[in-house]
Every structure is written in structure tokens, then in C-alpha cells.
């Protein structure tokens, strides 16, 4: 117990040290004026506090979170559902796997301009941008999770008279859960990329608006604060999901 607490304290120490090093470097680079568009860390923090205080950050995130959450929810339901279906049905597998293998490696951002052209510059386009980027990895991970199920467990279930439904519900789905969850985490990371692209490319709203606006009037500390905040939020969210994943599905309970 004491040992683990010391290890925890240790981790916090190194975390703070690594932040301190990075921020000191940033500050120095800003002070030396490497580039007019590169403000020191302290200015960025001040800008961040100003924006947090006047509510512009909160307002931006309120609008940024909409396409992200809606798009991610769609992927979570439809994407996971389709991935599972792909894993269970040989025909669907045969039809879709090559397509998703290609989509997963492909720069899906390329179709964002087309999405804008069809659906205009509203919320729909931004949701679609998130879906298009996040879906392939979510579908593929769900599919792989289903297909990687230990065949010996399936045989065991059949030997003890499990029906096909029972095999799916009691063996395959629990076995795939960890991988599906990991897919959702990777999908969310792609979703963040998608929402940023959408808000920078389609029309500036939310955090994309903050970035574009402050960069156009050369308020670089504000712009850096906005960029830093979205990276921070994405990192914290995904890290939290990773920890949750390790808690829900400890490696030793996954089997193989």
C-alpha cells in the first residue's frame, strides 16, 4: 500500500518535471523570438485565462462538442453494430472487409470538401466529417474483436449445448468487448481530428473559429491557447478512456 502510494507520488513528480521542462523550453523559445508567430508560454497562459474568464472558450467548446458527440455516438452505435455484423456473417465479411481495410489506411479527410459541397456548411457536414474519419477504425476493431475470439471457448460453449445465440452473447461479445472499446478510443482520437478539420475547413465555428480568428488578427497567444486547449482536452479524454479500459478489461482477463 505504502509502496504503491510512493510509486504514485513518484509518477506525479516525473509528470510535473516533464511539464516543467517542456514549458520552460517553450518560454525560452518564445522569449528569444524564434518567430513572430511563436509567443512565450507565459503569454499563452495569460491569454488562456483571459479567454476562460470572458467565456469565449466555454462558448467555443459548447459548439465544438456538438458535432463531435453526435458523430461519435453515431459511430458508436452504427459502426460497432456493423463491425459486429461483419464478424458474425461470412457474406457481410466478404463484402466489406476489403473496403474497410482500404478506408482505414486512406486519408478520409480528402472527402470533407465533397461533404461540404453536398450538405453545406451546417452541423450535418461537421457531424459527417467526424463520422467519416472515426468510423473505419471503430468498424475494423469491432470486426477483429469478434473474429479473434478464442475458438476453443466457442467449442467449449457448443460442447455444453450452447445455442448460436448463447455462443454470441456469452462468449463472442464479452471476448470482443475489450477490442471494441479500444476501437472506440481510437475512433474518438480520429473524431477529434475530424472535428478540428471540420471547424477549420468547412466554416470556422467553435474552437476552429477561435484559432482562425486570432490567427487572422495576429493574436498569437490567444491562438496558441486555443490550439493548446483542444490538444489538452483530447489528450485528457483519451487518457481517461485508456485508464477506464485497463480497469474494465485488465490484460489477464482478456484471454486470447
Amino acid at each position: 500500500m505504502a509502496n504503491s502510494r510512493r510509486a504514485g507520488g513518484d509518477r506525479v513528480f516525473w509528470l510535473l518535471l516533464s511539464f516543467a521542462c517542456a514549458f520552460a523550453l517553450w518560454e525560452a523559445a518564445g522569449r528569444f523570438r524564434l518567430s513572430a508567430a511563436f509567443p512565450p508560454f507565459s503569454d499563452t497562459v495569460m491569454a488562456f485565462l483571459r479567454m476562460a474568464a470572458d467565456g469565449s472558450l466555454a462558448k467555443a467548446y459548447l459548439s465544438t462538442s456538438q458535432p463531435l458527440i453526435i458523430g461519435f455516438a453515431i459511430c458508436g452505435v452504427v459502426g460497432v453494430g456493423f463491425g459486429v455484423w461483419m464478424g458474425l456473417s461470412r457474406t457481410v465479411e466478404w463484402l466489406s472487409v476489403p473496403v474497410f481495410v482500404i478506408l482505414q489506411a486512406a486519408p478520409m479527410a480528402a472527402v470533407v470538401p465533397l461533404v461540404t459541397y453536398i450538405y453545406g456548411i451546417g452541423l450535418t457536414s461537421k457531424v459527417l466529417a467526424v463520422v467519416v474519419l472515426a468510423a473505419p477504425v471503430i468498424v475494423m476493431n469491432s470486426y477483429k474483436g469478434i473474429r479473434n475470439t478464442n475458438s476453443s471457448l466457442i467449442q467449449m460453449c457448443r460442447a455444453f449445448l450452447g445455442t448460436r445465440t448463447q455462443v454470441v452473447v456469452k462468449i463472442i461479445l464479452p471476448h470482443a468487448a475489450a477490442m471494441i472499446f479500444a476501437g472506440l478510443r481510437l475512433g474518438l482520437a480520429m473524431g477529434f481530428i475530424g472535428v478540428v478539420i471540420a471547424e477549420l475547413l468547412i466554416t470556422p465555428t467553435g474552437i476552429g473559429d477561435l484559432i482562425t480568428y486570432h490567427s487572422s488578427v495576429a493574436d498569437f497567444p490567444e491562438m496558441f491557447a486555443a490550439v493548446g486547449s483542444i490538444i489538452l482536452i483530447a489528450a485528457v479524454t483519451i487518457h481517461a478512456l485508456e485508464r477506464l479500459e485497463r480497469r474494465l478489461f485488465p490484460p489477464e482477463s482478456r484471454g486470447s
Partner: peptide
């Protein structure tokens, strides 16, 4: 009833649920 070479136990279930699994099905 079958006993498997690689045991074929559900890694996410306790001993109790594993033993009861055939009955559960």
C-alpha cells in the same frame, strides 16, 4: 461432457461462474 486440453475457461468469469457455465447454458 467435454474436458478441454487448454481448459477453455472464460477469462472474464470467476471459478464459480465457469463451473456453473454448462448449467447456465
Amino acid at each position: 461432457a467435454f474436458v478441454f486440453q487448454d481448459f477453455a475457461l472464460l477469462p472474464w468469469a470467476t471459478v464459480l461462474r465457469n463451473v456453473a457455465f454448462g448449467l447456465e447454458l
